[in-house]
Design a protein around this nucleic acid. Structure first.
Length: 587
RNA sequence: GGCCUCGUAGUUCAAUGGAUAGAACGGCCCUCUCCUAAAGGGCAAAUACAGGUUCGAUUCCUGUCGGGGCUACCA
């Protein structure tokens, strides 16, 4: 049980004893982490919240609650301001909590009470196109959520829903047949396919007959032409090889790669079923589902202005020409995940711009009577310095591969400068960990919903609130354990540590909070809470490191400090692994 | 036009309705005979505007101004 839970339980019992039937049945309260240490470690505003309901003065209600709480073994209580109840945790209780954390492989993080099967859909690049900067948010946030959900004891299935069936294949097929240079394809398949696509795209603008030929190739593919299917399959294979290279550098792995094409055969029956059940109907030649407005009880459907009047915007599931769309595939995908994977939860890590799309398809599922924890885990856009969607000067997007290369290159320069005596191989792996860590941490420390301004120097920064800062704190701990010839994984003591120094206490305060922070992340899918916690922990460790010598201290003080170091190392290691960031032992 | 979303130090970002709004970068001062200075300790600096709800609002509601997005046959 976390300290927060322990104190919350005391509070709830005290309220029940004090108020009995007067306590509103639905009323539940927890103590919260205090914003400022001056007010203690945890606080409750129950007195202020309840005072009005039961017609009492908040201040005197607080006094009654504190009296009902009595003398707690874990914390001192006091009343402040208009009726806050502040809890100052006793150092002895911090020490005791650390002592039990030391023997807990999960470091105080409880497994979830109700494990679920969660499908997480993220990254989803297109075939024959390289990943660009726009894929970074989905890829990194999705991977982290998967790691955390798994650590919490859920059955997590990651699925890369690649775009392997788009209209771009008309041009690629035409280009493959007329423009392809096989030797280049061997060297860098994705770049070559992209070049083919770009060339043909440009050509189509000049020569309408080429465009017609491209469309014909697409129709041939869709109707099952053997030659085109064969080329299409090779494109997918080649793209996957290229993508896997990036994913493995990022240490990101998928359980499945079920792209759009996987659902082709399910689309026609799905649409027919929706027509038969009266959920979908024809409109202007297209088959549409008009939302029942479930997601917005204020009965405000999405509106579009058409011929001077306002009409609700439907989810179109079959075009007038008989073709299927994004929404159709996504509905089929939802069905598959529910029926085949038995998913309780399906999370889509996709940009905020697609908010309406997900509201619509989740709505269609509800109209069919299919309910579940469907979440659109949205994130903001990446903007340029002009606050417009980010492009390079020549209008190109930034290639993800280039970002990774640049990050590792920059980190490598710093490693060589700071630690020239390390063996080449180790320098290389440190540069890798630091560079990629910097990219991931920069992404994960932001609130996912805010837009952010892309800036090489910021994304690849190596000082301040960054991955290397956290990595460095781990390196410092490792260095201490190297000198004692012990291991932070196996250290044990007979008694709880003693915490005298303010820096020791502050470090303890943060360490015990790990078990409170991790489960809270999934409430709202906000990995930045973990990133910010780990940064605070590292900062607190650095202060402790300066203020409290470990190896030069003696007796129980030394032993206690080693316990603090060991737990810091273990929390950092576990926490950073949830963020997917590697910790080097030296740097 | 309608809907969604954002507006916080010079800059880039934080902040479950709580007390004196946190960081980082940049700026200005300090600290390596001492476990890794990729570090530590200081100083200056911000809630777009106007109302409302509340004991209490950066947070919730309304309006104004400003940025971004979506607005039926792309994904």
């Amino acid at each position: 049980m976390t300290i927060q839970e322990t104190l919350s339980r005391h509070l709830q019992i005290a309220l029940k004893n004090l108020l009995g039937d007067e306590l509103p049945a639905s009323y539940r309260t927890n103590v919260e982490v205090a914003q400022d240490l001056r007010y203690g470690d945890y606080q409750s505003n129950a007195a202020m919240a309840l005072a009005r309901q039961i017609k009492k003065n908040p201040r005197s209600l607080a006094e009654d609650i504190v009296r009902s709480l009595g003398e707690l073994p874990e914390a001192e209580t006091e009343i402040a301001g208009p009726g806050f109840i502040n809890f100052r945790v006793r150092p002895s209780f911090f020490a005791q909590t650390l002592f039990s954390m030391l023997r807990d492989p999960r470091l105080g993080v409880a497994v979830t009470e109700h494990p679920k099967t969660i499908v997480i859909d993220f990254s989803a690049p297109n075939v024959a196109k390289p990943m660009h900067i726009g894929h970074i948010r989905s890829t990194i946030i999705g991977d982290t959520l998967a790691r955390i959900a798994r650590f919490m004891g859920n059955n997590v299935i990651t699925d890369n829903h690649i775009g392997d069936w788009g209209t771009q294949f008309g041009m690629i097929l035409w280009g493959w047949k007329h423009k392809l240079q096989p030797d280049l394809l061997e060297k860098d398949p994705i770049a070559t396919l992209l070049q083919v696509y770009k060339d043909v795209n440009a050509l189509c603008k000049e020569q309408p007959d080429v465009l017609e030929e491209c469309k014909a190739e697409l129709v041939k593919l869709q109707s099952g032409d053997d030659e085109n299917l064969e080329i299409w399959k090779r494109c997918i294979r080649l793209t996957k090889i290229g993508l896997e290279k990036i994913y493995s550098r990022l240490d990101i792995h998928f359980d499945y790669w079920l792209g759009e094409s996987f659902y082709n055969d399910a689309l026609a029956p799905l649409v027919q079923n929706l027509i038969d059940t009266g959920i979908a109907r024809e409109s202007d030649g297209a088959i549409c589902v008009f939302s029942d407005g479930f997601h917005r009880p204020q009965q405000d459907p999405f509106l579009v202005s058409k011929d001077g009047q306002w009409l609700p915007v439907p989810a179109i599931i079959r075009k007038a020409d008989g073709g299927f769309l994004y929404a159709t595939t996504d509905l089929a995908t939802l069905d598959y995940r529910i029926n085949h994977f038995h998913a309780d939860s399906i999370w889509y890590v996709v940009g905020a711009a697609q908010d309406k799309h997900f509201k619509q398809i989740f709505d269609v599922q509800r109209m069919r009577g299919i309910n579940g924890d469907f979440r659109h885990v949205a994130f903001g856009s990446i903007l340029g310095k002009d606050r417009r969607p980010f492009k390079t000067r020549d209008g190109e997007t930034v290639n993800l591969q280039d970002v990774i290369d640049e990050a590792i290159e920059r980190a490598g320069r710093v490693v060589r400068e700071k630690n020239p005596t390390l063996p080449q191989e180790e320098q290389k792996s440190i540069a890798q960990a630091v560079g990629i860590g910097a990219i991931k941490f920069a992404e994960l420390s932001q609130n996912r919903l805010s837009d952010y301004i892309f800036d090489w120097d910021k994304m690849l920064a190596l000082t301040g609130d960054t991955a290397p800062y956290l990595q460095n704190s781990f390196v410092r701990v490792c260095s201490i354990f190297r000198k004692t010839n012990t291991n932070f994984e196996s250290i044990s003591t007979d008694a709880p540590p003693v915490l005298h120094h303010e820096a020791e206490l502050q470090l303890a305060r943060l360490l015990v909070r790990f078990g409170e922070v991790v489960p809270a992340i999934l409430d709202d899918c906000r990995p930045n809470l973990l990133a910010s916690y780990l940064y605070d922990l590292a900062r607190s460790f650095h202060s402790f490191y300066e203020a409290c010598p470990v190896l030069r201290s003696e007796g129980s003080e030394r032993e206690s400090r080693l316990v603090l170091c060991a737990l810091t190392a273990r929390v950092l290691k576990q926490g950073m692994s949830l963020l997917g960031i590697t910790l080097p032992e030296r740097m």
